[in-house]
Each structure stands twice: as structure tokens, then as C-alpha cells.
Design a protein around this nucleic acid. Sequence first.
RNA 1: GGAGGGGUGGCUGAGUGGCCGAAAGCACCGGUCUUGAAAACCGGCGACGGGCGACCGUCCGUGGGUUCAAAUCCCACCCCCUCCGCCA
Length: 432
Amino acid sequence: MLDIRALRQAGEEITAQLARRGFAFDLDAFRALDAQRKQADVQSQDLQARRKAASKEIGKLVQSGMDVDEAKAKVAAILDEIDAQLESEVARAEGINSQLHELLLGVPNAPQDDVPDGKSEDDNVEVRRWGTPRKFDFEPRDHVDVGESLTDGKIDFERASKLSGARFAVMSGTLARLHRALVDFMLDMHTTQHGYQEVYVPFLVGPEALRGTGQLPKFEQDLFKIEGERELYLIPTAEVPVTNLVAGEIIEADAMPLKFACHTPCFRSEAGSHGRDTRGMIRQHQFEKVEVVQMVRPENSHQALEDLTGHAEAVLQALGLPYRVVILCTGDIGFSSSKTYDIEVWLPTQNTFREISSCSNFLDYQARRMQARWRNPETGKPELLHTLNGSGLAVGRTLVAILENYQNADGSVTVPEALRPYMGGLETLGAR
RNA sequence: GGAGGGGUGGCUGAGUGGCCGAAAGCACCGGUCUUGAAAACCGGCGACGGGCGACCGUCCGUGGGUUCAAAUCCCACCCCCUCCGCCA
């Protein structure tokens, strides 16, 4: 949520920033509603103040010895007059306030100044590259062909579809183990080298948590909602439960920054992506991800985004997978984010880079929605903190990248050295 | 699932109808003292919203209700704890 005070003071600038990302903020409507709100607030608060004073007067009179009924009679006329308007005025003010709140919940974050203009992912700007794509002396096969033809464990989409329909995968044997090894490897790296604390969290969350990070109210169609008495959703990313750990809390300054690493499955309906990436494991309804999340002092969040992106890159470097980092343009950036770097891994059979991590700085946008604060020692006051998160990494897509980049002419796949300790020393998948 | 206890400020915890946005302690901030620190003493110190300000409003788990007046009484719900049962 944007700061309503900033919107009052600098409405034109913020409206212009929002326009860059294609969001038409109706400043006049906002101002009209805010003016109504002010008028209604003042009016209802004035009535409440007068009523309170009259009521206190009764208390005083009774205490100075007057009979209760007599005291009530003295102010009855005033109370009657106030009560005639009070209820409707308070209701009107509450109505306008919640209308204003809902309006603000639907407004995306404003992009930072250094986020490039653009309409779609085609306008994202490459920041840097790492690694050199391998030259194959045979025709490389895509991860589906490779994964399905492994001999001691494989990918099985047919059976997955029997169980759950399209966009699910079954994995077995050494391939399933590689998938699990990736999770361990990533978590170990973030916790031992990058200073994150591992957390385990619920995979089902209530609507408040989703509201806090920004998936609700606007993007309910992207979520899987559970049938039942309780209103629960499957998490689309660990960002939701992990970031909301600090919802409604005031974090002491010496505990900052908070840095969490978390492995969870992620569930996405993929509504609106029909026909995209239908082959293979690129886009699934269920996938594993190791997420890194930070809660930092506001002045540190820009540096924190650079650090966090580096932490995700370190995983790809350790695995020897070529990648590039792009900064998302205003047309491609996520709803709650003020600035996002995507990390894209090289996929030889697509002859291109594909997203494997998304690292974002939300500034105080999520913190305001969830009332996550820290105590600033300079002012002694609770202030909104800044939140960031990034994939470190998407496990399924990392597996895809390994299958494609590490495949051999005989159909086997070399296990990246960094993963061998997690595979009982196994060096190759599919070797007889 | 059964029985009981409880949700109050950053923390602990008092408060059973008006003088309560709320005692006290801790923590924190400022000061006195001290070479410095600690201790002691003095003062300050909840959050949110509105107003240039004096101030005003809201908030004692959530939502209703009773009352001129609710942290306090009533109802419903949520959550936590203890014991019993069941269970991966």
C-alpha cells in the first residue's frame, strides 16, 4: 500500500510514476474521496466528543451528590440531539474510510526511478551475464526428452496427469534425489554462507497474509483456495508466510536485519497462462522453491536488494549454470514491487535465458499493508520497515537447467560437482 | 472430542461500571552524581488517524449487545495454555 500522506502531498508525482507501469490512478477521484473522508471524520468526531463530554457531566454530577435520574435529566436534551445524528454520521465516516482503504489496496507499488520504461518482458534490460553457454558436439535434447529417458530414475508426466491432470510431474529414483539434493544444497548455502536463518512455515494461509504481501484482493484467480469451513489458500510462494512472520510486530533495532531462508512447495493456478510452456517442468501448478526474505532498515533496502540478488546468483555460479540478470521494466514488474531483478538461466534447447529467480525490493509497500515495523533508535518510534525477497532458487527450473546443460551424448546427465556430496557421491544420472 | 484457565502498552502485570488510554515493575530516552561505567536519585516514555496548534477521535483478542457511561456486565466467535482421550 502506498502512503496516503505522500499521495496527498505529492499526488501528481506518484500518479506519474504509476502511469509508467501502466496504472491509471484517478487522482481527482482520490482527492474527492479523501475530502469527503475528512469532512465526515471531523463531523462524526465532533459529535462523539460532545457526547462524551455530556456523559462525563452526568458522572460528575452524580459524584457531587446529585440523584442519578436528576443528573440524566439535565443533559438528556443534548444527548437526544446528538444521538439523532451520531449513528449515521459515524457509519458514513466508516464507510468512506473503508472505501478509501479498499481503493488504496488496489493500487500497485510505484516503480523506482531507475526502473526502465517498457510495456512487456521484451523491454527488460540486461544488467550482467555470467558463464559461457556450453558448445555441444551433438544435438542437445530438451529436459523432457532427457528426463524421460534416464535409466535409474526419471520424469513421468503421463502418470502425473493420471493423478492430477496437466502441469504436474512425477519424479523417481536418482532424479527425485537430485531434486531433493538441490533443496538441501540451496538451503545450506544461504544459511551457512549468506547469513539466513532457515524457517519452516505453513503451506496454507489465511486471506490476511495474502493481503499483506499483495496477492489479495486483486489476484485471487491465481491462487488455489481450499474448500472447507476455514478460509485458507495454498501458498503461491514462501514469500507469503515468511514475510508475514513480522505482520503486526515491532522489531527491535538490534534484531535487524531479519534474514530468512525457506523451502516450500508453491501452488499456482496459472490462470491466464494457457498454452504457455505446456511442455515439461517450466510451468507447473506445484513446484518447490527455496526463498530468501529480508526485513531491513529503510536506508539499507537498496543495498539489500543487490546483496540478495547476489545470493541467488551464487547458487547458479556454484552449479556452473550460465545466466544473466535483467532489471524488469515498468510493464513487467510485479504488483507490490518497486524494483525487481530477474535472474535467467541459460537453456540450450530454447537457445535463450529463462527466469529462474525473481528478486524484489518492496520498500514499505508490504510493510504498510501488514503493519510490520521496527523501532528506530533515533526517534524511539516504531516505523515501517522494508521487505525484500527473492527465489534462491526455483528448484524445478534449476533441475531443468541441469538436465539440459549437463546432458551427455549417451543420454546420461553429469551431476554438478557441488551436488555430489548431497547425492552420496553419485557422478552421473542414467549411467548403467 | 471432553474439562478447566487465560488473551490489557516493547515485555511482565494490576485494574470488576464514571476520577482509566490504563497502576507498578522491566526496558528505553534525558538529567544529577562519577575519571568512566554501574548503582542511586529526578524527569520523560503506548499505537493509529486528524489538526499549524491548543487539542480531538479511535484502540484493553474480534464482532455484536446492555447502559447516560464498558478494559470492567451479557452473547457469539477466534486464538493461546493446562489436563484427559485420540492420532502421523
